[in-house]
């Protein structure tokens, strides 16, 4: 039995593999292989499209599906209304896309596919900082563009809070500038780390179950069952984290946009 000792690599789930022999697709020398990560991005986008399309019946008295879609758009609308104000309305499409895409990617990455035996397992694209980082940079660029477009060079006053004593201004300016520039990193890393940590934890607990069962029935019962119960609890927690991280990403993006729209 020792030969069949499961070698569970908790990081394997994050490995990116090209699919459909697309490993060598290139544009201008850059590899654009259609990987499993891309596949799950597509699945998230298509699922989101189906979800929103189901709410497009435009009925006066909404059905359940339409109600669900409208509650999401209303949620984002309220979020922007509360954080940015009247000008926030025009960011609803962006924040909605951001929130829903991340939410769908997070949740779909948690789906325990019964095809795992065949080597097909869900892939959490949001556990890659190449993805979360790009989304964070897009949010950051929107803040920069809107800020400089609306306030021109006056936008730099964002880095000098009201009532700063004159001698402190250079130092405060540098500190605020650094904290401003760190935003895209913190935004991207937060989502990537939260998603990765949860999945690693689940995988490690799963390996406990497998290894304990392989070591004997006694170990299997003693270690495997508590581990499995813990996995269930953490799965529930992960669903919560998936929603919260999407919300945090959208919330922080809207707060940063508020800085750009209204300065202080």
């Amino acid at each position: 039995m020792a030969a069949e000792q499961a070698k569970v690599d908790p990081m394997h789930q994050f490995a990116i593999e090209p699919l459909f022999g697309s490993a060598h697709w290139e544009i201008a020398g850059y590899n654009i292989a259609f990987t499993n990560s891309v596949l799950w991005m597509v699945i998230s986008a298509v699922a989101l499209w189906i979800f929103v399309a189901g709410g497009m019946k435009r009925e006066l008295v909404p059905g359940r599906w339409q109600m669900a879609v409208e509650s999401f758009t209303g949620f984002i609308d309220d979020l922007l209304e509360a954080n940015v104000g009247k000008e926030g309305k025009k960011y609803v499409p962006y924040i909605f896309s951001l929130f829903m895409f991340i939410l769908f990617a997070n949740v779909l990455g948690l789906v325990p596919l019964p095809l795992a035996m065949a080597g097909i397992h869900p892939f959490t694209t949001t556990s890659h900082f190449t993805l979360t980082g790009v989304l964070a940079i897009i949010s950051f660029l929107i803040v920069l563009v809107v800020g400089f477009w609306k306030h021109k060079l006056h936008f730099f006053s964002l880095f000098v809070p009201h009532g700063t004593p004159l001698p402190m201004i250079p130092m405060i300016f540098v500190i605020e500038l650094v904290s401003f520039l760190v935003r895209p990193f913190s935004l991207g890393l937060r989502l990537f780390v939260a998603m990765m940590a949860g999945h690693v934890l689940l995988e490690v607990l799963a390996s406990f179950v497998i290894d304990a069962s392989n070591a004997g029935a006694g170990y299997g019962l003693l270690i495997g069952i508590p581990s499995f119960v813990l996995m269930l609890a953490i799965c529930a927690l992960e669903l919560l984290v998936a929603a919260i991280q999407a919300y945090v990403f959208a919330l922080l993006s809207s707060l940063y946009i508020n800085d750009a729209e209204n300065l202080h």
Partner: peptide, 9 residues
């Protein structure tokens, strides 16, 4: 993978 990730994203 960075180029494929960014491009497709």
């Amino acid at each position: 993978t960075y180029s494929s990730q960014i491009f497709w994203l």
